[in-house]
């Protein structure tokens, strides 16, 4: 893989040039006590002080609310205004962790399953992902258990790894990344060949993925196992909404008078309403069954149907969970039980 070096000064310059150019720049910023992705206007807003952002980067391609089209009603007539693909901005997404970057492959597998969701794919096509390797990890991180690692290039267009001097080793991962480097070629130096590995966080492997994949299907009918696992689960949507690979959504209409729009918004399999029929029947009646769906979807259905694991080991779900439903720990117990 081709490498370049971006000095700390050039890095700031690159950010300024991106912002003043044709791209909008989305990067991690401090939002009170948290760090989350925001559209930024100046390089000073960016922070590097985070393990992972609270929310995943998925909203760049799959926003939490999205107008699918507009409509206007006039008596018995109805007019629709199609989604405006031209309105999708060209975006540079900076400071994405390798786990997050890997998550886009899972999302894409869902949004392109037979019928292609062009709204999602166009958003992703117009996004350049500049990842940032992890120098730090915490107790919730487990990317190495799901075939990721703190310096994983997959899913990124460019991957930066900060050196002790404050410069950034720049790995050019994709054609898109190469184009961006070419656009700002004067900012990149020849790489000095510094070793990347020692700069990366140590993320211990919590479980053996193949073991989970081999065993999880046999656990489906073990109601007691799932209800015990989900005993403390409160049934909110926090885990799904911060997850980089959770793609489940709801479709809702919002209107004022004659005009309105159809909106796609995030939804979660953890919520009891998710599968509730109008008749009152609910195929997933208890939290154990809903928790099972969450794990099975990621570690059985997606591998089986879409050839991808629906988890990147970012640990956001565990951090966001009000009752610490640590997913890695629960997965591990599938092997242990």
């Amino acid at each position: 893989m081709e490498r370049k070096l971006l000095t700390k000064d050039s890095y700031k310059l690159l950010i300024s040039k991106i912002i003043s150019g044709k791209y909008q720049l989305v990067a991690p910023v401090k939002v009170d006590a948290l760090v989350d992705f925001r559209r930024i206007k100046s390089a000073d807003e960016i922070t590097e002080d985070y393990i992972v952002t609270v929310s995943s980067a998925k909203s760049v391609a799959f926003p939490r609310n999205e107008k699918l089209f507009g409509f206007e009603k006039n008596n018995k007539k109805l007019e629709q205004t199609d989604f405006d693909f031209d309105s999708i901005p060209h975006t540079v997404l900076l400071g994405v962790r390798p786990c997050d970057a890997m998550g886009f492959a899972s999302l894409t597998s869902i949004f392109c399953w037979d019928s292609v969701d062009k709204i999602y794919t166009t958003r992703l096509e117009r996004t350049i992902i500049i990842g940032m390797s992890c120098a730090k990890a915490d107790a919730s991180c487990f990317c190495t258990s799901v075939k990721g690692n703190p310096g994983n290039t997959a899913g990124n267009d460019l991957l930066l790894t900060k050196t002790p001097d404050g410069d950034y080793i720049t790995e050019i991962v994709t054609e898109k990344g190469a184009k961006l480097v070419a656009e700002f070629y004067e900012l990149f130096r020849e790489d000095k060949g510094a070793e990347k590995e020692p700069l990366l966080a140590n993320v211990p492997e919590v479980f053996e993925l193949d073991g989970i994949l081999a065993k999880i299907n046999s656990k489906f009918d073990d109601e007691v196992f799932w209800s015990e696992q989900a005993m403390r689960c409160l049934g909110c949507g926090a885990c799904a909404y911060v997850c980089p690979t959770c793609a489940c959504f709801d479709i809702q209409d919002e209107s004022h008078g004659k005009t309105g729009q159809r909106v796609r918004c995030w939804d979660s399999c953890g919520l009891s309403l998710f599968t509730l029929h109008t008749s009152g029947h609910n195929p997933r009646q208890n939290q154990g069954q809903r928790w099972r769906q969450r794990l099975m979807h990621k570690f059985s259905y997606m591998p089986d149907r879409l050839n991808t694991v629906g988890c990147v080991g970012c640990g956001r779900c565990s951090r966001a969970c009000p009752v610490d439903m640590n997913i890695a720990e629960h997965l591990k117990s599938i092997i242990d039980n």
């Binding site: 869902i110 949004f111 399953w113 037979d114 019928s115 969701d117 489906f220 793609a247 489940c248 959504f249 709801d250 479709i251 939804d267 399999c269 998710f274 599968t275 195929p283 769906q293 099975m296 979807h297 059985s300 259905y301 089986d304 149907r305």
Partner: peptide, 10 residues
């Protein structure tokens, strides 16, 4: 097959 709620197992 995208919104994720009608599945019965896989």
């Amino acid at each position: 097959g995208k919104c994720g709620r009608c599945n019965v197992g896989k």
